[in-house]
């Protein structure tokens, strides 16, 4: 009896011992803060003078946020940014990934080198592009003028700044789509292509009717992860535009940070953070459901 019990009990000890530090850390750093955040979002209070106490505010923080045009402006900007950069990344990434399926000399080296931008600090990326996009002496405007166009004040106007931010995010994250797309393309059985060749299918037909549909499950993961990451984008805007000109390039994350750490409207910031969390959670749920569907099929 003793010997029968022993492995099971050490197993249980191992589970508890090995898991509890991580569980406690995450409870303390994720669950507790989110719980508090929801709690704060129903109060009027400021982190600047916490001793003044918290006034019950009910839903007024949410009511205020939903009726405030400034907040809507930030949601609209974030939406435009997400749409622009994710579309560009997906198209570019799928195209380059497809092209990299063909073997040529130095392909693996090129592939590895192309992965680099996504591993860089978003702050470095932001400042690097801010430097290159400077309207007076930036290299981008130099290239623009080489082709005979007028210089553009990229980061000084709301419209171009949105495009600039999308181009920088696309620069950083297209490699991610390339990475996932090539993995998806590699997973398609060679025999299907051979069959298509026998049938005399054109390259375009093969791409749109075989390659894309068959890699859709993995590309969908890429899409959702990019939607989540670009929706909560914060670092890049701090470095690239600082939210300007004016407040025209402030994302929802940026607005949370500004409300909480510049104005110290902690209750209001909490409510906005809860809304942001709900959106992200919604996207995460779609991803998790998709993943379990994928797992069930294989």
């Amino acid at each position: 009896m003793d010997t029968a019990l022993k492995p099971r009990s050490t197993g249980r000890l191992m589970i508890v011992g090995f898991l509890s530090p991580t569980v406690l850390l995450l409870l303390f750093m994720v669950a507790y803060p989110i719980f508090s955040l929801v709690h704060y979002s129903f109060y009027n209070f400021s982190a600047l003078n916490p001793d003044k106490g918290m006034d019950w505010a009910g839903l007024s923080n949410y009511e205020y946020l939903l009726s405030d045009s400034g907040i809507w402006k930030r949601f609209v900007f974030t939406g435009k940014f997400v749409f622009l950069c994710v579309t560009m990344q997906m198209i570019l990434g799928i195209f380059v990934g497809y092209r990299l399926q063909k073997t040529f000399r130095g392909r693996d080296l090129l592939f590895t080198a192309l992965m680099l931008p996504m591993m860089l600090s978003p702050v470095v990326a932001g400042f690097l592009w801010r430097y290159m996009l400077n309207s007076e002496w930036g290299v981008v405007n130099f290239l623009v003028s080489l082709f005979g166009f007028a210089k553009v004040d990229w980061l000084g106007q709301a419209g171009p700044a949105l495009w600039a931010a999308a181009v920088v995010d696309t620069w950083m994250w297209t490699p991610f789509i390339i990475l996932l797309a090539t993995a998806a393309f590699r997973g398609i059985p060679e025999t299907i292509y051979e069959a298509a060749e026998v049938d005399g299918a054109s390259a375009a037909y093969v791409f749109f009717r075989i390659t894309l549909p068959m890699s859709a499950p993995v590309l969908f993961i890429a899409l959702i992860l990019r939607l989540i990451d670009s929706f909560k984008q914060y670092d890049l805007f701090v470095a690239l535009t600082g939210g300007g000109p004016g407040s025209s390039t402030e994302t929802v994350s940026f607005a949370v940070a500004k409300t909480a750490f510049s104005y110290f409207y902690t209750g209001e910031a909490s409510a906005l953070a809860v809304i942001l969390l709900c959106i992200i959670m919604g996207l995460a749920m779609i991803l998790v459901r998709h993943l379990s569907n994928m797992g069930a099929r294989h």
Binding site: V30, I34, Y40, K232, Y234, S253, T266, V274, L277
Partner: peptide
Amino acid sequence: LPPVAVLVF
């Protein structure tokens, strides 16, 4: 998780 959300806390 969006960092700014938990950062408020």
